[in-house]
Write a protein that binds this DNA or RNA. Structure first.
Lengths: 108, 108
DNA sequence: TGACGTAGTATTAAAAAACATACTAATGCT
DNA sequence: AGCATTAGTATGTTTTTTAATACTACGTCA
């Protein structure tokens, strides 16, 4: 929670939700994780354009907001798998609606 | 359209939609305009924290993306009213879902 | 022994977003 | 004449976000 309740005005819930999923890459990360668990390197390949540094940071933030689960395997070379938590899963409908809106209204 | 179609990979529609509504204040602006037409000064009062400069900029971008209509009345002191276009209206469901998600999952 | 693969970290630089503050134009009102 | 009102613009600064590049650790395999 980034805002305390008592200073929350009407638009707050919208604002707060956007703070969580509104990063440049977060929506896309979540979208990919909707269909599968992926390793770090796989996600990177799916999002050409994002740097390793930024991907790490976004994933950590999503993990911090409890939307994404980070599972580390004690192997060499290292293996780390990312999946949605239950809370992340609860965003499915919203993410899919945004995808559909983009398709329809932006011709993508 | 910020992206050309042929370089669009799978997550693109989500990304593009978020680019349009994902600004710090845009979701909130749209949310308020869902219920009414408002003047510049009214919007400002509803969003304590945003500066005049930023509000102007966000509104211009929303106008540029054809989500918001800006109607100027030739009066003094000036009067400018902002309302949703049809395209902006088409985001209603998404915005409301984000509001609901925030209420439920962020306790707002 | 030394290169390979994976998931990072560290550091610095650049770009984008937001903020703070002051200023303007036009008219009506006193 | 001078002040109030509204929706801005202008300018400069700070903060946040993203990018670029180089580096690390560790076991495996040749």
């Amino acid at each position: 929670m980034r805002h305390s309740t008592y200073e929350c005005n009407k638009g707050c819930p919208v604002e707060a939700t956007l703070e969580i999923i509104g990063g440049k890459w977060k929506g896309v990360i979540l979208y990919h994780l909707l269909e599968n668990t992926y390793r770090f390197g796989e996600l990177r390949k799916m999002m050409p354009g994002i740097t390793q540094h930024t991907l790490t940071k976004q994933l950590r933030e999503l993990e911090g907001d409890n939307l994404v689960l980070r599972k580390i395997y004690a192997e060499v070379p290292p293996r780390v798998e990312y999946s949605l938590t239950e809370r992340g899963e609860s965003l499915r409908e919203i993410i899919l609606m945004m995808r559909d809106w983009g398709r329809v209204h932006l011709g993508l």
